Simulated scan of single mutants.
Amino acid sequence: MSATIEQQEQPTSNSKKMLTAMVGIGALCALLIVLTYEGTAERIAFLKQEALQNAIFKVLPGIEKTRAFYLDKEGHFQPLPENQKEATVVYAGFTGQGELAGIAIQGAGQGYADVIKVLYGYNPQKEEIVGFYVLESKETPGLGDKIEKDEIFLANFEAMDVKLNADKSQLINPVTTVKSGEKNNLWEVDGITGATISSRAIGNILNESTSEMLPIIQRNISEFKIQ
């Protein structure tokens, strides 16, 4: 009888040891993940900010200086204080003489694989998008990622018409994506064959962002000053 009891208790003892070991390994892995995140978070944030600054100069050709502005609760743009985070931030670009040359605006929307984040340059005098850059994308390599490097596709955003109506309240023509080769108007995005969803997503992102942001920017254009 004693031997039988020992045989029945042995598996339970082994199970407890295995469970204890698994919990210990899990806790150690969790600790390592947290330490790695804490140790690299500052560096990652710095690199992201550096990449954003480089992108601003790409989407606003000819600028020499930039300044960040945030949209306050009253609907006005204020200079963004250093190390302060705000929900809606735009980046004004200025010439060497301090004249406003354009405004870089971020936009985001669902692509084929995940959310796509972009930055585009807006010329408020010409009312045109004058530059475009993909900040984050997980689109399919060789297909969807053409939104980042296809020269014909990127040419859509060198002088895209985003004019507002007379009272500056909405776009005259919404930004839309058309099939490759069927673009007839400057407010249209010439899509990419084989990457229909990704290229259509860009059109949707720009249409939503410009519809929301451009009327606010035009109403407050005098607030964008280098100092």
Results as ranks from 00 to 15, higher is better:
Leu71Phe: 01
Lys73Asn: 15
Lys73Ala: 15
Glu74Trp: 05
Glu74Asp: 07
Glu74Asn: 12
Glu74Gln: 05
Gly75Met: 09
Gly75His: 12
His76Ser: 04
His76Thr: 00
Phe77Lys: 01
Gln78Glu: 13
Pro79Ala: 03
Leu80Glu: 06
Pro81Ser: 13
Pro81Glu: 11
Glu82Gly: 05
Asn83Lys: 13
Gln84Cys: 11
Gln84Ala: 15
Lys85Met: 06
Glu86Met: 09
Glu86Ile: 06
Ala87Asn: 15
Ala87Lys: 12
Ala87Met: 09
Thr88Ala: 05
Val90Tyr: 09
Tyr91Lys: 02
Ala92His: 08
Gly93Arg: 00
Gly93Cys: 00
Thr95Met: 01
Thr95Lys: 00
Glu99Pro: 00
Leu100Glu: 02
Leu100Pro: 00
Ala101Val: 05
Gly102Asn: 02
Gly102Asp: 14
Gly102Arg: 00
Gly102Ile: 04
Ala104Gln: 05
Ile105Gln: 02
Ile105Cys: 05
Gln106Cys: 09
Gln106Trp: 14
Gly107His: 02
Gly107Trp: 09
Ala108Met: 13
Ala108His: 07
Ala108Val: 01
Gly109Cys: 01
Gly109Pro: 07
Gln110Pro: 06
Gln110Met: 13
Gly111Phe: 06
Tyr112Gly: 09
Tyr112Ser: 12
Ala113Thr: 05
Val115Gly: 02
Val118Phe: 12
Leu119Gln: 09
Leu119Pro: 03
Leu119Arg: 02
Tyr120Ile: 03
Tyr120Phe: 11
Gly121Phe: 07
Tyr122Gly: 04
Tyr122Asp: 03
Tyr122Cys: 08
Asn123Val: 03
Asn123Phe: 08
Pro124Gly: 11
Pro124Phe: 15
Lys126Trp: 10
Lys126Thr: 04
Glu127Gly: 14
Glu127Tyr: 09
Ile129Cys: 10
Val130Glu: 12
Gly131Ile: 13
Phe132Asp: 03
Tyr133Leu: 03
Leu135Pro: 10
Ser137Ile: 00
Lys138Ile: 01
Lys138Gly: 13
Lys138Asp: 15
Glu139Thr: 02
Thr140Ile: 07
Pro141Ile: 07
Pro141Arg: 08
Gly142Asn: 08
Gly142Phe: 07
Leu143Glu: 07
Leu143Met: 11
Gly144Asn: 11
Gly144Glu: 08
Asp145Pro: 08
Asp145Ser: 02
Lys146Glu: 13
Lys146Trp: 10
Ile147Lys: 14
